[in-house]
Design a protein around this nucleic acid. Sequence first.
DNA 1: GTTTTGGTTATCATAAATGATAAAATAAGT
DNA 2: ACTTATTTTATCATTTATGATAACCAAAAC
Lengths: 73, 73
Amino acid sequence: MNDKEKLQLAIGKRVKLLREEINMPQQDLAAKCNIEKSNLSRLEAGGTNPTLYTLKKIADNLGVSLEELVIKL
Amino acid sequence: MNDKEKLQLAIGKRVKLLREEINMPQQDLAAKCNIEKSNLSRLEAGGTNPTLYTLKKIADNLGVSLEELVIKL
DNA sequence: GTTTTGGTTATCATAAATGATAAAATAAGT
DNA sequence: ACTTATTTTATCATTTATGATAACCAAAAC
């Protein structure tokens, strides 16, 4: 498990946590962000190294700032 | 100028500002991050949509947290 | 038990970030 | 002016995130 993989897992968990806190399904969040739901699923599972723009859209639609999204990463 | 481009310009300026605050040349930062100096140049100019891992390496080597790096974006 | 609902996994194509290298431009210092 | 350091720009190959679609799994509802 390298740094990159750890980071991917961490951001994935963070997104999942914030999303579940507001009871928003993956598909809803994905739709709002204009990303594929399968893509979001992989992201939350730590399977991708998302770009800044993807993270920004997720933060916006979760109602948090980008800082809050990447906290402790 | 769309949202993505604005975001790229914003992160670029932020990296540049933080880097210059500690008087670190692009090439030094790039070397520490194991990224190409040309790549960093483009990033600071707003020409790329960097991945989370790239941003994390940059934050680490600038001596700031990821939150601090993406502040106000 | 069979519909929903939410989530996962798989595959392939496409777009784009990055690696690698080189050349040109700019600034700073001597 | 000349040198040196720094940055920018360009190009091409490679890697990878994402788009798009489909099939599958799990749990809860009914």
